[in-house]
Nucleic acid binder design. Structure first.
Lengths: 112, 112
DNA sequence: TTAAATACCTAAATTTCTTAGGTATAATAT
DNA sequence: ATATTATACCTAAGAAATTTAGGTATTTAA
């Protein structure tokens, strides 16, 4: 693994971004998607993910649908309208954050 | 201001990076430097900065020198040898983190 | 002479995450 | 057959990092 410290504050943004692209995902699926996309470099822990999903729900950014699949229950999360807006904002905020950090780290982040 | 949430976990890296470039900085100077470099977008709070500096000192990454300047005391922070190494590592880690996040945010972070 | 800038600091509370559990079914390996 | 891994949900105690809200003190600008 690696830099878990840096992940702080990014989880909500990651979840919103994925939901924006997929319309409908369940918790376990999100953990696997992140693992796949980042080639195992980022591994969300369920202890962090589920409370985050519940918080997004209580804030009205997502709502849920339960579906049975192969004897197991999946709880799908979907963006609400305000969740769509929030997702866009968080994504832009992150892009801006990276851009801003380039002023401090200059060359280092530009390459590759 | 903006995205304070994203800053989480980045403070130590920023401080080490600045000390690596300047050899010698005092706390207040660091807050101003970050403010300048990021055009007011990132404003370190002293409540976060000073405890971080003290922690870096207790870990042996920095040491201090007090100097009087115009009737006020400045406490300069300098990197130790292990601090130099730690700085390099943290900087690389951050670059790698941004790179990894691009897998999730694809196009969004590539531009500009 | 009052406010703002410079310069240091701490401590309570909050937020966020890790660690370490717990439950349960399906699929795979032994 | 049966034990382990993968799938699928969850909570709660504790740790770590930061915010908020103070405090002290000197110099400079209004």
């Amino acid at each position: 693994m690696y830099s878990k410290e840096l992940m702080k504050g990014t989880l909500k943004t990651i979840v919103l971004k994925l939901l924006k692209e997929h319309e409908k995902m369940y918790g376990y699926e999100i953990t696997q998607k992140v693992k796949d996309l980042t080639q195992d470099k980022i591994q969300l822990t369920e202890g962090a993910l589920y409370p985050t999903l519940h918080k997004l729900e209580s804030l009205g950014y997502v709502y849920t649908e339960k579906k049975e699949y192969n004897g197991r229950t999946r709880k799908y999360y979907l963006l609400t309208e305000s969740g769509q807006a929030e997702a866009t904002e968080k994504i832009n905020e992150f892009a801006e954050f990276v851009l801003t950090m380039k002023f401090i780290f200059n060359s280092k982040l530009a390459a590759e």
